[in-house]
């Protein structure tokens, strides 16, 4: 059996196989089942290239033919978030999951916190709805030219850039014990986006609207401080710091509302 130790394996590593156990579903409402695959090893391969191999030759480890495994991917460089799945128990991007660094058999599952469409394909619509709900944009449209906005200090821009790296991949929601179908919690990603857009000199002008959105049903109070999100985010976004900072701002907003300010 192939071992995950050799990094500079020769391209002629003929016969070496990579073993996969994949959780599949035929339709959104169908019950899940697993299938095993053995894919010929190639140096530097990642989970996506292995899935492409299965797509090319959809034969299970026991030699039976099966339907090709479905997945989503786009950028192949960990910036779009489309290929997120649970790999060996942890949610992450398949395109940056190198086979050489994974223990085998490699277990692939969909991030089932989200509705599963088919096999490894999930529907992340709730994340985009969350961004709409918190107004994660900067309104600059008007009926006349509003002129240039205030400038942002370079140091602040660099700081904000870190928060802007979020690719809506959904890993933090998958890791969160409070994102489930008994709970309406919006999830960590969009809370951090409120911090980002509220830090922008123009975005700041609509600060209260975003904070108020976090103070609605399923908003920021749904956070229970498990802090799995910050440990899981592939972009290293300081999610728990963002959540605590927004806790502070929503608390201030609450007192402002009470005092009628």
């Amino acid at each position: 059996m192939a071992q995950a130790t050799t990094t500079a394996a020769p391209a002629t590593a003929a016969g070496r196989k990579v073993k996969f156990i994949i959780t599949r579903r035929e339709r959104p409402d169908a019950s899940p089942f697993t299938e095993e695959f053995e894919v010929p090893y190639r140096p530097n391969m990642n989970v996506i290239s292995a899935l492409m191999e299965i797509q090319r030759n959809p034969v299970k480890a026991n030699g039976e033919k099966t339907a090709p495994v479905c997945w989503e991917s786009n950028c192949l460089e960990e910036v779009c978030g489309a290929c997120s799945m649970v790999i060996n128990g942890k949610p992450r991007q398949a395109c940056s999951a190198l086979i050489d660094k994974l223990e085998q058999p490699i277990r692939l599952e969909p991030m089932a916190t989200f509705p599963v469409v088919r096999d490894l394909v999930i529907n992340r619509e709730r994340m985009f709805n969350a961004l709409k709900k918190v107004k994660a944009w900067i309104p600059i449209d008007g009926t006349y030219d509003l002129g240039p906005g205030p400038r942002m200090a370079e140091s602040k821009r660099q700081w904000a850039y870190e928060l802007s790296k979020c690719m809506t991949c959904g890993v933090c929601l998958e890791a969160c014990p409070n994102v489930n179908d008994r709970n309406s919690f919006i999830g960590p990603a969009s809370i951090s986006q409120v911090r980002l857009f509220n830090a922008h000199p123009t975005g700041e002008m609509n600060k209260h609207e975003r904070l108020e959105a976090l103070m609605e049903e399923g908003g920021i109070e749904g956070c229970g401080n498990s802090q799995n999100c910050v440990r899981s985010c592939p972009k290293g976004i300081p999610l728990t710091t963002s959540i605590a900072a927004m806790n502070k701002d929503t608390t201030k907003q609450l007192f402002k509302q009470w005092l009628g300010m």
Binding site: P177, N180, G224
Partner: peptide, 23 residues
Amino acid sequence: IAYQSNINTGRFSYGRNWAFALQ
């Protein structure tokens, strides 16, 4: 609130996640 939470310390055995479950 407890009913609304999953316990996922099996997958994420971090200290703070344990504290979340223990809470």
